[in-house]
């Protein structure tokens, strides 16, 4: 086995041992008194699974806490076999876990786990999203009144929304704060959580229906006039003069909040 082609087959066999326990590589490893060839390969196998489980535990502490360490580790081993890493950075290894939990036989009947995992992965994404200069509240003063309806809002890349149906924020927060974890409970309806990074701190906030709708629309390219329409739908008394004022105040208030919270990088 001296040609490059054979280095390739050697590496493939080594990888198969890590992935499936396949023994082809073992006969090509020298045994010595202090450790035989199987023990030597096991050092790598243990390190492989250990490192990846540790990575998932780092990204998904609340899922781990809900499942318990033993169950979480077993589930991670299934995940590692189903989704071996294809990226040079461990940063991306856990990206399939929410979908995996939604689909895996052991967890699909507990949908709060996939939702909780989505929340935790969104925090990961907000944490290292691209830096960009954000606008402050003075940005609105540069916009002429007649231009407002057509204004398009550009959010910071760390801004994400999560729709959820379970008490995942309570679950996540109690794990973070090392408090007693409540029972998973379905909510009466869908809620939306905003996650973003302000300066270096990752933040989250539960949204009212109209704000959630407005941000979703703005993220899809709707103009400020479009956001006002969404706010209108949430304010049934909008037909009269007071109602129109209420819409304008609410819409302007949302924009002011987003600027104050460092979420906006462009108004154009």
């Amino acid at each position: 086995m001296h040609s490059l082609r054979n280095l390739k087959s050697l590496q493939a066999a080594f990888k198969r041992h890590l992935f499936t326990g396949d023994g082809d590589i073992v006969e090509h490893i020298v045994s010595m008194e202090n450790a035989n060839n199987e023990q030597r390969m096991n050092t790598y196998t243990n390190a492989y699974y250990g490192r990846l489980v540790e990575t998932l535990a780092g990204d998904y502490p609340a899922v781990q806490a809900l499942l318990g360490e033993e169950t979480f580790t077993a589930l991670c081993h299934d995940y590692i076999r189903a989704h071996p890493s294809t990226h040079y950075s461990l940063r991306w290894f856990g990206r399939h876990l929410p979908a995996f939990l939604a689909d895996a036989p052991d967890t699909r009947n507990r949908p709060f786990l996939a939702e909780l995992a989505s929340l935790e992965w969104t925090f990961v994404n907000a944490f290292d999203a691209a830096d960009a200069s954000v606008l402050d509240e003075s940005a609105v003063s540069t916009i002429a009144p007649e231009d407002w309806p057509a204004i398009i809002i550009k959010f910071h890349l760390s801004v994400h929304l999560i729709d959820y149906h379970w008490n995942i924020l309570d679950l996540w927060r109690t794990v973070r704060d090392e408090e007693d974890i409540p029972q998973p409970q379905a909510l009466p309806g869908v809620s939306t959580c905003l996650i973003w990074r302000q300066d270096l701190t990752t933040r989250y906030r539960i949204l009212e229906t109209d704000e959630a709708g407005a941000i979703k629309a703005a993220m899809q390219g709707a103009s400020f006039a479009g956001l006002c329409e969404i706010v209108t739908c949430a304010l049934p008394a909008a037909e009269d003069e007071n109602g129109q004022l209420e819409i304008a105040l609410r819409s302007a208030g949302l924009l002011k909040t987003w600027l104050a919270e460092g979420m906006i990088v462009g108004l154009s």
Binding site: Y44, Y48, R51, S85, Y88
Partner: peptide
């Protein structure tokens, strides 16, 4: 550290 499009995130020795 990997082969066949996979990364095993370990520093594996060579012959």
């Amino acid at each position: 550290t990997g082969q066949g499009g996979h990364n095993v995130h370990d520093l594996l020795p060579l012959p």
